[in-house]
């Protein structure tokens, strides 16, 4: 049975696209047939994070307008044969697609794929409505910041209004050293405020920046963020995986400051 999952956040820059790339790649690593759809028309990004920007011929708008068949627009990933990307159009805007067209598209893809992941644009306007239209469930990405959490709360309300079956929360860019100092809200604080099921937390890891530079998602790697993303994938598939101890892998500065604290 296939599932359509929208990755959304309300606020921009909290890690929707990175999460989509990593969760999609992770599910493909776990032998699922996956397609990633970039629904951010006009601000195409998922292709560069996936490292597939040089292979684009057709895009989402071409498919919806009937300029090509779905299969022609799908880009096969260079690492995983069961992972595909449907890129967004760069020269159009959100009004080029309607929610009804998106629903029709995702329903067609259901026949072929196990997981259809939709990378949602920031905001709550047309782009959000398009992305949510065909979705069964949502992953809401937030960071432990006042602005991101406020927007996440608004998004969760809108998702409820759209009657999605399930909404899960990903707390991104958490810094355990700051949480310990009391200068960042903890994962529990965020979950407490938003009152929604937590499906995983991802540490603020510089390996993410490096992997984005290279266009290769780091899911499944030894980096703490890579492990965290892999656990999220397993939980999406229904596995019961305990939460990762994000403070286990303290960086150089954390070790340094702990030495000073002892003195």
């Amino acid at each position: 049975m296939s599932e359509v999952i929208v990755i959304t956040s309300g606020k921009g820059g909290v890690g929707k696209t990175t999460t989509t790339a990593n969760v999609g790649t992770g599910l493909a690593k776990l032998d699922k047939k996956v397609v990633l759809i970039d629904t951010d028309i006009g601000l195409r990004n998922l292709d560069v994070v996936m490292g597939l920007e040089n292979r684009i011929v057709y895009n989402l708008v071409d498919v919806v307008e009937g300029n090509c068949r779905i299969k022609q627009a799908l880009i096969k990933d260079k690492r995983y044969p069961n992972l595909y990307l449907l890129p967004s159009a760069q020269t159009r805007d959100k009004t080029a697609v309607t929610p009804e067209q998106m629903k029709k598209l995702t329903d067609e893809l259901r026949e072929e794929f196990d997981y259809i992941l939709l990378d949602c644009p920031a905001g709550i306007e047309q782009g959000f409505k398009n992305a949510v239209a065909g979705a069964d469930r949502a992953l809401v990405v937030t960071t432990p910041e006042v602005s991101a959490i406020r927007d996440a709360d608004r998004i969760i309300g809108l998702l409820e209004a759209n009657e999605l079956k399930r909404t899960d929360l990903i707390v991104n860019r958490i810094r355990m050293d700051m949480v310990k100092r009391g200068d960042m809200m903890s994962i529990d604080d965020v979950v407490d405020i938003l009152a929604v099921n937590l499906i995983g937390a991802v540490p603020d890891d510089e390996q993410i920046v490096i992997s984005t530079n290279q266009g290769e998602p780091l899911v499944g790697s030894d980096a703490l963020a890579g492990k965290a993303y892999m656990n999220i994938c397993k939980r999406i598939m229904g596995e019961d995986v305990p939460l990762l101890d994000l403070s286990a892998n303290n960086g150089f500065f954390a070790k340094l400051s702990s030495i000073f604290k002892k003195n």
Partner: peptide
Amino acid sequence: NSGDVAKDRLKLLL
């Protein structure tokens, strides 16, 4: 702590 301040502010805001 600024983390607690953030949490309290958010609770009211939401």
